[in-house]
Amino acid sequence: MLIKYIENFLRALGKPLVGFVSRLGELSLFIIRALYNCATPPFYLKLLLKQMVDIGFYSLPVVALTTVFAGMVIALQTNAGFSSYGAESAVATVVLIAVTRELAPVFSGLMVAGRIGAAMAAEIGTMRVTEQIDALSTLSTNPYKYLVTPRLLAGILVLPILVLIGDIIGIFGGYTVAIYQLEYNAANYINTTINELAAIDVITGLVKGAVFGFIIALMGCYNGYKSRGGAQGVGTATTNAVVASSILILIFNYIITGMIFTK
């Protein structure tokens, strides 16, 4: 009786564990294969450019909107929090650091994950369940090179550019609130911003952008590629892609910040 109970308990414990480990192995193989195919010909430059436009150019509005409001709200909160210690110089510095190090990369990453990660998983997943991926193989075209490689490379290349644009727009958002709502001195604000601007802050943001771009494209492609079973399977793949990439973005954001700014 007791042995039976323990056996059932262990079985319940083991099944998800085995499932998790095999998923992890599958993902590792997918990453290795994808990276190998990034480095070997043939290269589909046209598809890469198309993905860069899709991921980069068409994400500009959402990235601009999220970062401008992020910058604005940080200016308000810093002013509220530091009002007793002379907030005027603090606001410019905090906006600068918060936007370049954290907010621009994280918000760009999350917005692109929602926009692009979902689209990638849905498109590749649909191609999988309608046998279009098998059709690529039968036409002697490597589906990894044709579908996965352009998306991964585009993600890695384009996200840093989006982050850089987000930096500028976010700082501008903080500036407008500080000058027009809190009525700070514009010259002082700009002066503080320029003095405090450090290369490491911006570079951190760009590194994060590249890592997030890789995560978004990887999760989108992987979940799409492995999707099974019709419309429902594609729906699950899309959800998984967005959830997994969002969580991974926040985890890796913490890890990268920890690596660069902990002494």
Binding site: E123, E131, D134, A135, L139, S140
Partner: peptide
């Protein structure tokens, strides 16, 4: 040296009809 007609057609919906037919000719 193999070709295949899929059950659902499996045509690439991001390409036009002629690009589908010519896929192997252009890419390979």
């Amino acid at each position: 040296k193999m070709g295949m007609l899929f059950q659902g057609g499996a045509l690439f919906d991001s390409l036009t009809v002629w690009e589908n037919v010519a896929f192997g000719l252009i890419e390979n």
